[in-house]
């Protein structure tokens, strides 16, 4: 990204319930664990349930393939692919 683009990025009002696109691969922090095999991530107020993301992925940054998204109630489902990073304080 050019220097100018870095300055121009983000000059907009961003929704509190961002949309997701089925088939996209995205990185998200897992907020909590719903059960042994499902993690829950909040992207703003959009809820994404991640199949295959167990409790060990909580507060980790994970790569997810979005499989479902319902814009009417801002909820979606995704498939866990891999852990790609940790919290800011993991160095």
């Amino acid at each position: 990204m050019s220097i100018l683009m870095k300055y121009l990025k983000g000059w907009r009002f961003r929704s509190s319930t961002p949309s997701l696109t089925e088939g996209d691969e995205i990185n998200v922090f897992v907020a909590e664990s719903e059960d042994r095999d499902t993690g829950l991530a909040y992207i703003g107020d959009t809820e994404l349930r991640i199949d295959g993301a167990g409790p060990e992925t909580v507060e980790k940054r994970v790569r997810v393939r979005v499989t479902e998204f319902d814009a009417s109630d801002a909820t979606g489902r995704g498939e866990f692919l891999e852990v790609v990073g940790g919290s800011s304080y993991t160095g």
Partner: peptide
């Protein structure tokens, strides 16, 4: 208002 808000997915 969400002005300037950026998510990890952005």
């Amino acid at each position: 208002t969400g002005f300037g808000r950026e998510y990890l997915i952005d």
